[in-house]
Amino acid sequence: MNSPRFRSRRQLLLAACAGLAAPAVSLAQLRGKPAIRILVGLPPGGGTDAIARYFSDSLPALLGQSVIVENHVGAGGRLAADVLKSAEPDGMTYMIAPNATPTFQTLVFGKQLKWDLWRDFTPVAGLVSYPTGMAAGMATGAPDAGAFVRWARANPQQASFGTPGLGGQNHFLGLQFARAAGIALSVTPYKGTPPMITDLLGDHIPSAVTLLQDLLRHHRAGKMRLLGIFSDKRSPLAPDIPTMAEQGIPVRLGDAWTAMWAPARTPQPEIARVQAALKTILAAPQARQTLMTRLAVVPDYLDGEQMARRQRAELETWGPIIRASGFRAEL
């Protein structure tokens, strides 16, 4: 069917990318050239996959090569990273992943991993960022962070937060929130975000920590209360939602991000041409609107050196927090 109602997300993204300032490349020109692979460690249809496909749909016109997305799903993104480590460093294989894969996998599993972030991978570019928030169920009656803290103190046996898995940014942000607020919150882990949201909507858990985009529409519909975001400043994705710091709870470590990596020893000219293409895509006039309105992320380009600094700073920030939590995990 040709009705816009039936157009896929992929078709919408293709249409949005059509205005890129790049020469047209025909199928005939692409034919015969090897395809560049982008590895994704999370499921098709999810947020990271949609981000990867936004770029994979735009890159062929700029690189003169086909670009395909390969999903290697499982283990919180580790499987895709395993494949990247084994790939030839020839400029034909890259990985797009959220910061949970390099940062928190490294800090939680350390030498249990098959790869080392600094030895085996080269950062190519930062692509987008997005905030993490905390929401409360309607049964708590808490419209903001302060009210939820008061509720938790009055209901210590019920006070808890849900998280889509243990050992990730959401988990440790919840622990940091409880510590900063001076309350005790037990952790209720889930296998992913959807079942956690279902339980929060049904008031089976009193609160949850996850990406803003997973909470916002339910907050707008009056089905839960978004207490705040864990960022330095309000997000352009939801400028009406306050930060936790504004409300007297100084937890500012919740901006998540998605980036691209290459195998170590990938030739610098190959990395440079991909960087240039990614920067062109993000600089296109329609990119900001498309990414913010359709994928709920903010364009946030960083080159390889800037990415390396971001990675190092994040590891240095979260390392002591995770060690202090006493959390241990085994592969």
Rank of each mutant, 00 (worst) to 15 (best):
L212Q: 15
D120V: 13
A181C: 13
A259M: 11
I229M: 06
T193G: 00
Q105A: 11
G326A: 13
F55G: 03
S207T: 04
T266W: 14
V83H: 04
C17G: 13
P239R: 03
G137N: 02
I51Q: 09
D49H: 07
Q158F: 07
L215I: 04
V274W: 02
G110R: 03
L173S: 02
Y301I: 04
R309V: 10
T140K: 10
A329Y: 09
Y54D: 06
S207C: 03
D303C: 01
D240Y: 15
R31I: 01
L166S: 15
A50R: 15
S186E: 11
G76W: 15
S58M: 13
I96K: 08
T280N: 06
P23S: 10
Y301G: 04
H218A: 03
R78L: 09
R252N: 09
E314D: 09
A81M: 05
V128P: 03
P285R: 02
A277T: 13
L291S: 13
L211Q: 05
R5S: 15
T103G: 13
V209Y: 00
S8I: 05
G77I: 06
S186F: 00
G46C: 08
A75G: 11
Q158S: 11
N99C: 09
D203Q: 15
G228I: 05
D82K: 08
K85C: 12
S58D: 08
Q306M: 08
Q289Y: 07
Q65I: 04
K33P: 00
